[in-house]
Design a protein around this nucleic acid. Sequence first.
RNA 1: GUGGGCGUAGCUCAGUUGGUUAGAGUGCUAGGUUGUGGUCCUGGAGGCCGCGGGUUCGAGUCCCGUCGCCCACCCCA
Length: 426
Amino acid sequence: MLKNYTYQAVKGTRDVFPVEAYLYQRLESQARKLLACYGCGEIRTPLLEHARLFERGVGQGTDIVNKEMFFVPSKDQDEDSRKENARQMVLRPEATASVVRAYIEHEMDKVSPGVLRYYYIGPMFRYERPQRGRLRQFTQIGVEVLGSALPMIDAEVIIMLEDFLGSLGLQHLVFLLNAVGCPECRPGYIRKLQVYIRGCQSRLCGDCRLRLDKNPLRVFDCKQPVCRELMARAPVMQDDLCADCALHHEEVLSLLDRAGIKYQKDSRLMRGLDYYTRTVFEVTSSDLGAQNAVAAGGRYDNLVTELGGPPTPAVGWSLGVERILEILPREPDKSRGFFDIYVVSPGADTTRTFFKVMALRRQGLRVGLEHEPKSVKAMMKRADRWGARWALWATSKNPEKVEIKNMANGEQMSVGWEDLPQLVGK
RNA sequence: GUGGGCGUAGCUCAGUUGGUUAGAGUGCUAGGUUGUGGUCCUGGAGGCCGCGGGUUCGAGUCCCGUCGCCCACCCCA
């Protein structure tokens, strides 16, 4: 809107002002509280990682590393090597690989033997075309549990997620579950699937013909009616699970049943990341647009060795904070209660009032004070808009006393400055 | 990367087949109420109609370009 140059937020990023930031804070503190009950400790890994980590960890064939990474050129490269080396660092597109990297790098299996439970909260970056429910910078809350292959851990992690989503009072959620096998049984299944798909290749859409060789499992995700219909009769992984995977899956299901978790088995559910084994799951919401996944996760028993660590089975999930916020029931009054006290008239001695207010703030009261006040009427309006609980007048006659009005019921009284903390205190 | 839609007060949007001074609601502001908010009434401020070019006597309106936003595909949280 300015003449020549306008500064605006980078595409796919958003500014969050206090009213909305408050919603983030509440969601995050709820998550921290609940996850701590499950024994998860917070882990903070850098937003910057080497591209190699995700190429190896998430997988070369995935969109996330193929076309969605934000590359960060580093400063100390000379011009000649810049082009090549520019691919070295990226803003993290997800955090599982980072957590595993940190786990291996710090030899946590030796530092703290046993099952380790971590959670993280923070921004992720993916270079995608923005749309509803899809930002280039978005926030994830995630959990990673390392060190156990027991089905009970799968169940625990899933219950944790269910518990959290349930505590938010979200409606219209669907919990999808699948088993995707392991290196023992998956390759055989994929060959079988390819044979089936090849059989009806001519009827598939163009995209799916390409997927056939690159990643046949993705054909299950296709939304074309023709492909869906054909894939409805395709062989499913579940019938080809090896004995261990089948048993594991059964036990997870039985635990979830006993926990009273409602889920749908979905043999078409294929996570888009290469590292998943055995249990995968996804929570979707019909209140969102096309990007309807609220949370997703699964078991990744081979990722730690893949990244050079000791054999360490693991499970985890992550959820999209912005997507949660979008479907969270909105409260009508957003900025209610921002101030405990709002000064509508500083009186004759404004400096004195200034320091009185400072003293109240040091005692933990949230006090609003305008240094260039308008008419009292206007100030009252502001006090109301901020949702202040009390409006305050400093009186010129008696500087030790103030007039104070309860904004909720209109009652007004005269008290000393020193009485305020007790009167107003929560 | 591919489609489709949309850019007009801070915000949500009207704006006739091109026509002279671009509107409403909300918000902001001042007053009605000589320190008192949430209702009501009255006044005021606030717009190069995204940007650039073209057609025309005349463009918010038509054409071209460009930038931006949104939605969908793809993919995912």
